[in-house]
């Protein structure tokens, strides 16, 4: 069998060029941009702020409310404005991905709104969005145990690769493409996002997680630098 080469030419565990910056939305209490190659996510945090209607308030904690969406021109086929089933699902799994690190008991009856928008999409939008949201929450001074780091691992045919782009997600040879986006509490073994579409054997999941762990460490370094830069500039 000829040695497998990724369509993108990247190495099997090579992440696309990452960049991150905090403070991109001056109006927000915290904000950040995170990109994997051509995928660009921006996130803004507003709050803790007053939650209406009152019956949604929780006297024991603040509520986290994530809204993820694609800008209409971030994809080839124009995305109709407004929430879709897909964007609502991603909003919810992003909330679940972030909540384990947050300590929101300090702010009873309030809401923390996290707005995540994709400016340009080339697969991996939810993982870029989670990385941006995690940075924006830190930037907003929200108490958190740690950052959340996110990456997509996956398969092309039988080969485990990291950070699939759109062409790679559409790979059709052999077993085709598998997309396995994960998020985890940085520097820990706790996974906070787990989604998968494709075909992967149980033993391969173990291997994929190990690869994801290493990739997440690289994501973390980019996030860390972005936050430190705020003051060192």
């Amino acid at each position: 069998m000829a040695e497998f080469k990724r369509p993108s030419g990247r190495g099997m565990t090579e992440i696309r060029k990452m960049s991150a910056k905090v403070g991109v939305i001056p109006n927000a209490d915290g904000s950040a941009m995170f990109s994997f190659g051509d995928t660009i996510a921006i996130a803004a945090v507003y709050g803790p702020r007053l939650l209406h209607p009152q019956h949604m308030q929780d006297p024991s904690t603040a509520i986290l409310r994530v809204n993820y969406d694609l800008l209409s021109f971030s994809v080839y086929e124009r995305k109709k404005p407004g929430p879709s089933r897909r964007s609502q699902e991603i909003s919810k799994v992003t909330e679940w991905a972030l909540l384990p690190v947050l300590d929101l008991k300090e702010f009873p009856n309030t809401v923390i709104d996290v707005q995540v928008y994709i400016l340009q999409a080339d697969a991996g939008t939810r993982t870029a969005g989670i990385n941006a949201a995690s940075l924006a929450l830190a930037h907003a001074g929200i108490p958190m145990k740690n950052l959340v780091t996110s990456i997509s691992v996956g398969k092309q045919d039988k080969n485990i690769v990291v950070d699939l782009d759109k062409d790679e997600e559409d790979y059709e040879e052999g077993e085709g493409a598998t997309d396995f986006p994960i998020a985890k509490v940085a520097n820990s073994d706790e996974y906070t996002l787990l989604q998968l579409d494709g075909k992967i054997e149980p033993s391969e999941v173990k291997k994929a997680l190990t690869i994801a762990d290493e990739a997440c460490e690289k994501v973390y370094e980019v996030q860390k630098r972005a936050l430190k830069e705020v003051v060192e500039q």
Partner: peptide, 22 residues
């Protein structure tokens, strides 16, 4: 956005607007 047929982002002071053409 390289997925748009044309796009631009204009900042005037702190006001920031992105526009894409499809």
């Amino acid at each position: 956005s390289n997925k748009a047929e044309g796009s631009a982002r204009v900042k005037v002071g702190k006001t920031d607007v992105a526009v894409g053409i499809k």
